[in-house]
Nucleic acid binder design. Structure first.
Lengths: 232, 232
DNA sequence: TGTACATCAGTGAACGCGCGTTCACTGATGTAC
DNA sequence: TGTACATCAGTGAACGCGCGTTCACTGATGTAC
């Protein structure tokens, strides 16, 4: 059934809402229960379509999972790539700072989804994908989006303070982990924050909170002459 | 079958190696493939025991999963609790620092497992457990280990710099996320570090790298009179 | 304009498979008298 | 010391269930002549 997969892009009648209904339902159910724990029956019944429609339109459950990610990541990487073009073309003395690079990600992640709820949902999916140990999904994502990822990393390393490359490497992973966790657990964490501190804030605001934390972590141990107290 | 579960602790003949063989196999396979993706058949065949032995000794797959966590977390929390006693009894002017509190966790986590490999395995399991959305596991862990967790948090907050409580709350979650991610992905990340930078280091060393990063992140934006450059 | 055919989205029912769990059973060990 | 019984760990085979996938089919729409 892999060949019939092509129809959905060649024949993009807006009436083929079945495809997007399936994607919507899959996105939410996967985020709530995980990939293995979500059955095609629960997806198709929530979407109000026939069970066989998933295999008809996507070929298999695997390919449906990939399609859910593609729908978010394609426009995200497209936008990110354009912003990276601009950064790369800047002169030597107007290179982006660490904070610029971090805010850039927040900007583009919040730009793609239709709602805050959808952003939270997708962050959960990203974290789930990362936690998959030996699945097809991780390989698929690495392969598909490697180019943009590597361009971003190059600029980020350029903005990082001078220190051994391996130290930068580890700190970038600390940042990545903090982001994935915070955003994928956002709804839970926000609820606790509201209950315990009475403070209600949108996900984007939480993401902005991460920037000074991460920038300071990256710069830790680095002697900053004259600018020790103005770094965020 | 829940009642037959009690035997394994009352009758602790060392010959009941079936139980620990099952736990060993389950620990590794769960970490490699996730809970839902690991069948009892694969666990029992790797352990070299009969399929029905899991239900006989543990009652159900759910309870096996919980037992895997208990085996690590019980001694860990026991040790941690004793260290917390000591910290809590200290005088006002010898309170533990942020770094003390972070190193404390590293100390006790590395003390429990038999090998580095087992530590990595267990960190994967912890991250998997956290990523479970609405499972029995998260509730079970929260309920069972809440007390020690809350005592640790109280001391950590006491060691944190003066800033709005909600800011501390978010930053602690950033730390938690960075830790879970780094440690659960440790084998992969270590392999990349060795390939790209030729540096081979044990997991404990990576965990120690996190301490200054996190401490600096926690203190970001905080004015540090006179001690600005000696904080790690 | 009318007819024949091809293409497509979508359907209903069934398929085989692997899963967690159950159950009657065996054999070894410990205990009571 | 010997016998009867209870308790326990472990077993082999089967159970029913939910899963992803398949397949023959329908009906609507587009195209060729």
């Amino acid at each position: 059934m892999a060949s019939s997969n092509n129809h959905s892009s060649t024949r993009t009648n807006t009436r083929s809402s079945t495809v997007s209904r399936i994607l919507d339902a899959a996105e939410n159910l996967f985020a709530q229960h995980g990939f293995a724990e979500t059955s095609l029956r629960s997806i198709t019944s929530q979407a109000g379509v026939n069970l066989a429609a998933v295999n008809y339109h996507f070929g298999s459950k695997k390919e449906l999972i990939q399609a859910v990610f593609t729908r978010f990541l394609d426009p995200f990487c497209q936008r990110l790539s354009e912003r990276l073009d601009e950064f790369e073309n800047r002169g030597k003395n107007e290179q982006p700072t660490l904070e610029d690079m971090l805010h850039l990600l927040v900007d583009e992640m919040t730009a793609v989804p239709h709602s805050t709820a959808q952003l939270e949902t997708f962050m959960r999916l990203l974290a789930l994908a990362y936690n998959q140990t030996q699945g097809h999904l991780k390989k698929y994502l690495e392969l598909t989006y490697r180019d943009v990822f590597e361009r971003y990393m190059k600029l980020l390393i350029g903005a990082a303070p001078t220190m051994p490359a391996v130290e930068i490497y580890w700190r970038i992973n600390f940042i990545l982990g903090a982001s994935l966790f915070t955003m994928s657990e956002a709804p839970t964490l926000q609820a606790i924050a509201e209950r315990d501190y009475g403070i209600q804030e949108p996900l984007e605001s939480v993401m902005r909170r991460m920037v000074p934390f991460m920038a300071a972590g990256m710069r830790s141990g680095q002697v900053q002459l004259g600018q020790a107290l103005q770094q965020d």
